[in-house]
């Protein structure tokens, strides 16, 4: 926590209070850097998952090339980007994995680390995690 960060946060708060409303709200997709940003994020996330012993075994029999594609599509759709998701539903994709709470949180932590590594801001990180977290009950202990 640097002084700069605190100043930054208060500036944001101050700005948001008095900013004119004509500014078109950027989608979360834009905030993530569009397709290019999401591609970078996807690569960083896969690197994090591969390096995490809590997560890596889940990918033992997964086609990483396909995972990379549908993961990016999913992030794009969830963040209101102009994409179509071609993968399975979250419930179908995780059925039979018996994903437990610790593993789910490990995936969240790795994604957070990935977002930090590609310089996604904390508010944008939080917004994406909030949207992704909605599927938690669909995928846990299935």
């Amino acid at each position: 926590m640097t002084g700069r960060t605190i100043v930054f946060i208060f500036s944001i708060l101050a700005l948001s209070a008095c900013a004119p409303t004509v500014r078109a709200p950027a989608t979360l997709y834009d905030q993530l850097g569009g397709n290019a940003g999401i591609a970078r994020l996807t690569d960083a996330a896969i690197d994090q998952y591969a390096a995490d012993p809590r997560v890596a075994p889940m990918f033992d029999h997964v086609d990483i090339g396909r995972f990379r594609r549908v993961f990016a599509e999913y992030i794009c759709v969830v963040s209101d980007g102009p994409c179509r998701y071609t993968g399975a539903s979250m419930a179908d994709a995780h059925r039979g994995m018996n994903l437990h709470e610790g593993q789910f949180n490990a995936i969240v932590e790795d994604l957070t680390a990935a977002m930090t590594s590609v310089h996604v801001s904390v508010p944008t990180q939080n917004r994406l995690i909030k949207r992704l977290a909605k599927v938690r009950t669909d995928v846990l202990y299935k």
Partner: peptide, 9 residues
């Protein structure tokens, strides 16, 4: 509350 305060939790 995730992202509740200008994106901050």
């Amino acid at each position: 509350e995730l992202a509740a305060l200008d994106g901050y939790d």
